[in-house]
Computed example of a mutant assay.
Amino acid sequence: MSEPAVLVTGAAGLLGNAVRALLEADGRRVVPIDRVSMTEEGRPIVVCDLSDVHRLHALSVESQIVGIVHCGAHSGPMVARDNPYSMVQVNIVGTANVLEIARIHGARFVFCSSTSAYGNTPGGPVPEDVLLVPTSVYGASKVAGEQLVSAYSKQYGVDGVSLRLSWVYGPRRTTDCIVRTMIEDALAGRPTRKLFGRDFHRQFIHVDDAARAFVMALNTPHLPRQSYNVTGGTYLTLGEIGDIVRRVLPQAEIELGEGPDPVDDMQHRFDVSAVQRDLRFQPEISLEHGVRDYAAWLRNRAAA
């Protein structure tokens, strides 16, 4: 009989792929699922849609699932913006389907939530227990997912936790990201010009740090909280982030106007004392190091 396994949903995506790699490096058996059959690098994936409850159950029985890291979802407010029905089906119904696996098989459950659940925040540091008032269907889907995790815990005893990630960047991120835009423009000899952002704060976390937090949460059952803020530890304006990109890539020409991003929330620094206390989590990758890492990956990808 094979050893018990961890189910990682969204395993072809940015975070799911990184979580899978960390777990496998630790010697854990992983069942990686997504809607595609392999990652960009050619690593095999078990094809399974989150809506296919029968397939999910069959895989769980075959593989002795004892833990679930649920990263499978539309990955941000910029995705499926014109298809809110899909956002609800994938992010909310899909989460309920995977929670059923956790309930039936007694699996530890770690949910990838987002600081988009907050919407616009009061003054910081912002703790986990403030009122959540999302401004996007994506943010609302994360609130709903967290509430499902909490309800499954209270009603059925599922050992679950939600990690609210700030903006994730780094190698393999290809969806909308101002850091990637600045780097790609610099590498191509193009200027980056935005009409906003010089004084607008955004909190980034490198994908490898985010993945570590998820593995730590998976490995720490029965946490005292059911939701945690997880950020990269910085609170910088896009102008300050542009300065870091220029230090890494001196050819970068970045011009930003004043004012907020018109499609993003105004958020203050998030309080991360709970995750530091309960998981002993600290980000290890500075933004400058992360930008260098991301630039090297983008340069190699463009050359390939």
Rank of each mutant, 00 (worst) to 15 (best):
P4G: 01
P4T: 09
A5Q: 06
L7K: 06
L7G: 08
T9R: 09
G10T: 08
A11S: 14
G16R: 02
V19I: 13
A21K: 09
L22F: 05
D26R: 15
D26F: 05
R28W: 11
R29A: 04
P32Q: 07
T39M: 08
E41N: 10
V46Q: 15
C48F: 01
D49K: 03
D49I: 06
S51P: 00
R55T: 08
S60C: 14
S60E: 06
S63F: 14
Q64T: 06
V66N: 08
I68G: 10
H74Q: 09
H74S: 13
Q89I: 15
V90P: 02
V98N: 04
L99K: 00
G106Q: 09
R108V: 09
F109V: 00
F109N: 00
S113F: 09
G119F: 07
G119T: 05
N120K: 04
T121Q: 01
V126G: 04
D129M: 03
V133D: 09
E146A: 13
L148R: 13
Y152N: 04
Y152T: 12
Y152H: 13
K154L: 15
Q155Y: 13
Q155N: 14
G157F: 10
V158C: 06
S166L: 06
V179N: 00
V179K: 06
A186W: 01
H201W: 02
R202I: 09
H206N: 11
H206I: 02
F214R: 00
V215I: 00
V215K: 10
L218H: 03
L218Y: 05
N219R: 12
H222F: 11
L223F: 05
N229A: 03
V230D: 08
T234R: 10
L236M: 12
V245P: 14
R247W: 02
L249K: 05
E255I: 09
L256W: 11
E258S: 15
H268G: 13
R269V: 15
R269E: 15
S273A: 13
E284R: 15
I285Y: 11
S286Y: 08
G290V: 12
N300V: 03
A302K: 15
A303M: 12
A304I: 08
